[in-house]
């Protein structure tokens, strides 16, 4: 079937099976290879993208269901040459090692920051809250500490969340 969807603000079309995974539509049909595949089972979050404003795992979303929807991938986080605050913080804090989990972490963390999901959390609980909000993003390299640092740095920079 032909699906029409908005990806990173641009209207796109693809001729795909409705049973294809959104992950493959993005990577193979639309050549947006920033989104990674880890497990293909919804467990690891490497394929995290925003679908209609919610963070989802693109490996377990059917292409047919994306017709008429809005998708934001890691390629869509930056504004022109300016990276999203959390992308800059991940670089500054050393929050990426092999990098396989990083696009998914960036998308999920950007969502947490942009939607102010930490709003109202006392500073003492913010670290635990970030860990819980990012629980669906598995990283085999960093031990998470530097990722959580980066998210908190970005929260501080963006302010009031």
């Amino acid at each position: 079937m032909k699906i029409e969807l908005e990806v990173n603000g641009q209207p796109r079309t693809a001729e795909v099976s409705p049973w294809a995974r959104l992950l493959d539509v993005l990577r193979e049909d639309l050549r947006l290879t920033g989104t990674k595949e880890g497990c293909g089972e919804g467990e690891c979050g490497a394929c995290s993208v925003l679908l209609d404003g919610e963070v989802v795992n693109a490996c377990i979303v059917a292409a047919g269901q994306c017709h008429g929807r809005r998708v934001v991938t890691v390629e869509g986080l930056a504004r022109g040459e300016v990276l999203h605050a959390v992308q800059r913080a991940l670089v500054a804090c050393g929050g990426a090692q092999c990098g396989i989990c990083t696009p998914g972490i960036a998308v999920c963390a950007a969502h947490v920051i942009d939607r102010k999901l930490l709003a109202g959390k006392p500073v003492a609980e913010a670290r635990a809250a970030v860990r819980e909000l990012l629980a669906g993003n598995i990283c085999r390299c960093t031990g998470y500490q530097l990722i959580v640092d980066a998210v908190l740095v970005a929260v501080d920079e963006v302010g009031d969340s």
Binding site: G42, G45, S48, L51, E54, V55, V56, N57, I60, V61, C108, H111, L133, L134, A135, G136, N137
Partner: peptide
């Protein structure tokens, strides 16, 4: 149930 990504879908 699951994490954010699973709870959203």
């Amino acid at each position: 149930i699951g994490a954010l990504q699973i709870q959203a879908r």
